[in-house]
Design a protein around this nucleic acid. Structure first.
Lengths: 139, 139
DNA sequence: TTTGACATTGGAGTTAACTCCAAGCTTTAT
DNA sequence: ATAAAGCTTGGAGTTAACTCCAATGTCAAA
């Protein structure tokens, strides 16, 4: 079990952030020590890693809390509901991936167009490069 | 040329947002009409689309302004600098894509594990599904 | 045993990114 | 000619997500 400071350090977040997430129902401490200190286990560590990843790709804490609550079990009365929610999230993720693929393509064009290469610097900005990539993709 | 309201509607953002971006040096109006009204051209429209995309995948306005300012031209004295900045952004984008690929895999596992399919509902949450995907990827 | 690092709570302050408002000017429709 | 819709500015207000602070409690080391 980790104390809050240890977990915070492992994850490069502040202890305030961990307490904030607890207050906002994203992640409660696994348990409390006799002295009242929060204690976290490996599962909590993994959940935090998930939250950090999800934040990095543009999900809000509210959305993340939605993602965290997706569960399939036999007790679930609303499997269809869960399924449609999950499919909706999946299409969100697919959209994000497609947009990042555009960015990636443009940035690669830019890197290729830059000094190092033999080609002429025809693409003068990320925007024109992005247009180029959009054109390639839409073919 | 579009007036601010027209552009806002086309992009499903507010006029306030467009003025906010101007104030914060992300996107100035292409020109002003005689009466002082802002006017935007197709280029401005495309820049706004870029900003909206970039925001959706987790870039801050500050980072976006950095992305927008990436330009390769003959006048540039610091081509190496531009190149290294671009490569750094590229690796950021690659990280985001990898993380989204994990999400995608987990969500797909969940969808597959859900009622509809023949398989048993062995993955009880997105987190356990995510672990599974991580395991697959790290092979 | 006391100093220092760590923890607790409640609550105030900060930053980014809007969002709204008031007072006033412009243009279009009746 | 007047109302409605759209634009201008400056500035205040809001929300999310922290971030900091004060007062206090805990614990290991010198």
């Amino acid at each position: 079990m980790y104390r809050i400071g240890e977990l915070a350090q492992k994850l490069s977040v502040s202890t305030d952030t961990l307490r904030y997430y607890e207050k906002h129902k994203l992640l409660a401490a696994t348990s409390r020590a006799d002295n009242g200190y929060r204690l976290y286990n490996e599962g909590a560590l993994r959940i935090m890693q998930f939250i950090i990843r999800a934040k990095a790709v543009g999900f809000s804490l509210k959305e993340i809390s939605g993602l965290l609550s997706i569960k399939i079990d036999k007790a679930s009365h609303s499997c269809a509901e869960v399924k449609s929610f999950t499919e909706q999230k999946l299409s969100q993720v697919n959209n994000k991936i497609a947009e990042l693929a555009c960015f990636k393509g443009s940035l690669e064009l830019l890197v290729a167009a830059c000094c190092g290469g033999e080609e002429e610097a025809t693409h003068c900005s990320i925007l024109s490069a992005l247009e180029n990539v959009d054109a390639i993709i839409s073919k």
